[in-house]
Design a protein around this nucleic acid. Structure first.
Length: 436
RNA sequence: GACCCGUUCGUCUAUCGGUUAGGACUCCAGGUUUUCAUCCUGGCAAGAAGGGUUCGACUCCCUUACGGGUCGCCA
């Protein structure tokens, strides 16, 4: 029997990290077992569904690389994959309940009569959990068909899982208490229940429930900030699952290979954006300069910076120093334009060095006299001047860095010297010497 | 309120009765780099509390506290 999992979002908002992780775990489980991953759109709430939300969810799935084998855009033998198009199917299954005498009318709606007994589920993550349905006050018969003739979530969800022959339902822990309801429905249908796995929820850094609006909640924000999909997938996979080894950086293929529901945790995890950025940087390190440059280019342009002929060399100088593509503009702006800002703290540190101003002034003159400009020639000039003044060359590296870049941190000085060229180096050093 | 699930460094986590409780992020210090970053080394930092069971509990059981979830003609 082949594994069949599904992700069943309702298009009432953008894709958030919790949903993305649920989709990811279902996808990983299906891929790991050579199974089928189904996308089903649960659009039964007409009032709240929107086309934008549906699109945002699809976009998020595509961006993350979570391709589905059956569903919208793909087709399949168990369609349609929009619940809004499955009315006849639901009517037929509802008729079974009527024949079996398991539903009764209440105020125009139809309620499903629970069997009053303890219901035990065998969750792949939570283990054995029993809910006592003899306690009617805690488990009132549920509405399965509204007075307007439409069906509620519990009903359509169960029918579709049965119809689509879903073998494993991996979903958020917020559905744990729904499972006995679903089990009772399945039993009434005489169907075979899928295996359930309820995964812990994702919380905000302060421990509160993560919801729309919260930082990091929307998957759509990640590409805008310059995250790599593989890094986001890597990070959310580690939120609630671990490989039982000390490896932390995984490609999608490695996740497929290592993933297992047994290693899913029980307690909710908090979302740490800092670590997510670190994971992104680790993935960035594996990207080629060319690919990095291409991906960073939209960010550079959006910041209003020019893209020069030596753009690739500029990127190469900062590639391994940023955590996000979104960090690139701020890292390269001083290499691409003249009106960059000077960092006051860095400038103050140089001013504290009484000899710096004079040496920089002399350095500008020496730079100007270099016929064949290169970083090595520039450094040789610096060594000569500083040594002649009885100081150590290393002491002038920092002032030179601030003169050329306006800040304390940045690319290798040799790269900066090469990228700026003689004339700009001369002008900047001279200008900065005047500031000291 | 009732019912479920959970609780190891600030955060993500390892540990499946005997460990100096390990790793990672963050932060700090040192080293490498004539500079920056990378990198390397080191450091700070944890078993919610109280009872049991046991020769021995982070690990098993109970209670309490705290956190989360669910109790819709939302999904």
């Amino acid at each position: 029997m082949t594994v069949r999992t599904r992700f069943a979002p309702s298009p009432t908002g953008y894709l958030h990290v919790g949903g993305a992780r649920t989709a990811l775990f279902n996808w990983l489980f299906a891929r790991k077992h050579g199974g089928v991953f189904v996308l089903r759109v649960e659009d039964t709430d007409e009032a709240r569904n929107t086309e934008e939300a549906r699109q945002a969810i699809f976009d998020g799935m595509h961006w993350l690389g979570l391709d589905w084998d059956e569903g919208p855009e793909k087709g399949g033998d168990f369609g349609p994959y929009y619940q809004s198009q499955r009315k006849e199917i639901y009517d037929a299954w509802f008729a079974k309940l009527v024949v079996a005498g398991r539903v009764y009318e209440d105020g125009g709606a139809w309620r499903f009569r629970f069997e009053r007994k303890p219901v035990t589920m065998h969750d792949l993550v939570c283990g054995e959990v029993t809910i006592d349905y003899r306690d009617e006050s805690n488990t009132p018969d549920m509405v399965v068909k509204r007075s307007d003739g439409s069906y509620v979530f519990h009903f359509v969800n169960v029918v579709d899982d049965l119809e689509m022959e879903i073998t494993h339902v991996i979903r958020g822990e917020d559905h744990l208490m729904n499972t006995p309801k679903h089990l009772q429905l399945i039993e009434a249908f005489g169907g075979k229940a899928p295996q359930y796995a309820h995964i812990p929820l994702i919380l905000n850094p302060d421990g509160s429930k993560m919801s729309k609006r919260d930082a990091g909640a929307a998957v759509g924000d990640y590409p805008r900030q310059g995250f790599l999909p593989a890094a986001v997938v890597n990070f959310i996979a580690l939120l609630g699952w671990n490989p039982k080894t000390e490896q932390e950086i995984f490609t999608l293929a490695e996740l497929v290979e290592k993933f297992s529901l047994e290693n899913v945790n029980r307690s909710p995890g908090r979302f740490d954006l800092e670590k997510c950025k670190w994971v992104n940087q680790q993935h960035l390190l594996t990207v080629s300069v060319e690919d990095f440059a291409a991906a960073a280019r939209p960010f550079v342009e959006a910041a209003g910076l020019p893209v020069p002929a030596n753009y690739l060399a500029v990127i190469a100088a900062v590639k391994d120093k940023v955590r996000l593509f979104g960090d690139v503009p701020a890292a390269v702006d001083f290499l691409l334009k003249e009106d960059f800002e000077y960092d006051e703290e860095a400038v103050a540190k140089v001013r504290g060095n009484a000899a710096a101003g004079g040496l920089l002034s002399a350095l500008a003159t020496a730079f100007e006299a270099i016929p064949e400009w290169s970083a090595d020639a520039a450094k040789a000039a610096l060594n000569e001047i500083v040594t002649a003044a009885g100081a150590k060359p290393g002491q002038m590296m920092f002032p030179l860095r601030v003169a050329l870049s306006g800040r304390a941190h940045g690319p290798d000085l040799g790269d900066v010297l090469n990228l700026l060229g003689r004339d700009r180096c001369v002008a900047r050093v001279r200008h900065f010497a005047g500031m000291c």
